[in-house]
């Protein structure tokens, strides 16, 4: 269970990212939707503390993330996979190398530096590449892969962590419809295997099609939180509402 309580984030330029956010993520696929600048990325990155909120709590199981020390943070990050809109792979390296990077967080410092991967880890990396449909691309430089293929390498890297949660920040924003379907279906399958999937999306129809739960964000606040079936027109209007008062000014 991933629980967020009373979370606040204000950026140094006084822009409000999150305000008193309370939300509990359940197993399955949860889509976070909301207008641009609503705070979706801020919320997602607060979970593995790529952004540190000023106050509130983020708990995975009984581990508090927001205030964890460096060592504890690395441990918890290893339990949480992440995929990105721009894939964020080391493009010059082969697909398999990037997948293997997923186990760096579970290694000793020296093994990490030496890049010493066990036979089991190597076998697992190949297995995962096959699972995301890239068995034939293992030794291909990532720079030479298509966007959809890169995103699947990113997913394989996340899976290499054997994560409890995978965070996805607009994973399909740069993909064509066929790749979108492949990636979203893959994420759905992972959720069925018990990995909690939290995904930021811009397209409501995609969210409806693939998500079990929806979290709606507007102006740094949670304005909707419930099963996908409950996402009616009123809820959508609230999520995508422009604030009447020009508060930014």
């Amino acid at each position: 269970m991933l629980t967020i309580a009373g979370l606040n984030k204000t950026y140094p330029n006084h822009k409000r990212g999150l305000e008193a956010v309370n939300v509990t993520f359940a197993p399955g696929v949860t889509a976070i939707i909301g207008p641009s600048g609503a705070g979706k990325t801020t919320l997602l990155r607060s979970i593995n503390r790529l952004i540190t909120p000023e106050s509130g709590s983020v708990r995975l199981g009984d581990q508090e993330i927001r205030t964890a020390n460096a060592k504890a943070l690395r441990k918890i990050r290893h339990r949480i996979g992440m995929i990105f809109q721009d894939y964020n792979l080391i493009e010059e390296l082969a697909a398999i190398d990037n997948v293997l990077h997923g186990c760096l967080g579970g290694k000793t410092w020296l093994a990490g530096i030496l890049g010493h991967y066990t036979a089991a880890e190597q076998a697992r990396a190949y297995e995962l590449l096959a699972e995301v449909g890239l068995a034939d691309f293992a030794t291909q430089r990532c720079a030479d892969l298509s966007g959809g293929q890169k995103q699947r390498v990113g997913i394989a890297r996340a899976l290499m962590q054997s994560p409890e949660v995978i965070l996805c920040d607009e994973p399909i924003a740069s993909l064509d419809p066929a790749s979108t379907q492949a990636v979203m279906t893959l994420l759905g399958d992972l959720a069925k295997r018990g990995i909690m999937i939290i995904v930021n999306l811009h397209q409501v129809d995609i969210a409806r099609q693939y998500a079990d739960h929806i979290v709606g964000v507007n102006q740094g606040r949670i304005v909707f939180d419930g099963p996908t079936a409950g996402l009616n027109d009123a809820a959508l209007a609230a999520i995508y509402a422009k604030e009447a008062v020009a508060e930014d000014a």
Binding site: L50, M82, I90, L104, G106, K107, W109, G112, G115
Partner: peptide, 22 residues
């Protein structure tokens, strides 16, 4: 890119493994 480095940080990897492997 900072993004690729951040992605490795998000896996829980430490600084020197990130530098040397990534």
């Amino acid at each position: 890119g900072g993004g690729a480095i951040e992605a490795l940080e998000a896996t829980g990897a430490r600084y020197w493994p990130i530098v040397i492997q990534g």
